[in-house]
Design a protein around this nucleic acid. Structure first.
Length: 200
DNA sequence: ACAAGGATCCTCT
DNA sequence: GAGGATCCTTGTT
């Protein structure tokens, strides 16, 4: 199969919610492994109480305040490497929550304990593990050739949305906000319940 | 130095 | 569906 072009940076010069919609179906390429993005969450800047950028600008969160198209990778629960794509407005980012394998399935399975099926890639920690990323990639540009690249894929025709996962520390309003987006009809989604058709 | 908590995962029932 | 595992980052002494 042919390999897509690197995504244009202008695609991410938007609010994280718009960028999130744009990222569905795009490809993440790390060596032999290529994943198609199936589920994302938008974190909409310092005013979004669920976003790391709302807790201030630190060494860890610095990439969130940098150029669009860079990665923000952080360690969650001391174990899981979570991949975000930084979007245009200051402090905006998109968390990649689930993907579908496109190539390199054997390597993905090896990194994921020999498992198979959606359990391989439905969860942000699992995506990080499959791509073998860590915090050394935080602040890295994923729109230029390198160890992790974001390339054109196939945008989905229809999309679902619902509340974001695991943000009990955020304000009630932001806990309810339906800023988690997923490709409609795919099995490669971490929490299928609570998702409804998305009509922008 | 230390304590607290976390954008999760996995293994049960 | 629920609960424990797990260990680094952060803010505070």
């Amino acid at each position: 199969m042919s390999r897509g072009d690197l995504l244009q940076r202008a695609s991410l010069h938007h609010d994280a919610l718009v960028s999130a919609r744009r990222l569905l179906g795009m490809h993440l390429v790390a060596g032999e492994v290529t994943l198609a993005i199936t589920e994302v969450e938008a974190y909409r800047g310092p005013s979004d109480t669920a976003a790391h950028s709302a807790k201030g600008r630190t060494a860890r969160t610095e990439p969130m305040f940098g150029p669009a198209g860079h990665a923000y990778v952080y360690l969650c629960y001391g174990i899981h490497h979570m991949l975000n794509i930084v979007a245009g407005p200051q402090g905006h980012g998109v968390l990649v929550r689930a993907c579908e394998p496109v190539s390199g399935l054997a390597q993905i399975q090896a990194r994921r304990g020999g498992r198979s099926g959606p359990v391989l890639l439905t969860g942000p920690g699992k995506v990080g593990q499959a791509l073998a990323i860590d915090r050394s990639l935080s602040g890295h540009d994923v729109l230029s050739p390198g160890p992790l690249e974001l390339r054109e894929g196939t945008p989905p025709q229809s999309v679902l949305h619902g509340p974001r996962v695991g943000i009990g520390y955020a304000s009630p309003e932001h806990q309810r906000a339906p800023w988690r987006l997923a490709v409609a009809g795919t099995r490669w989604v971490s929490h299928p319940k609570g998702l409804e058709p998305y009509t922008p």
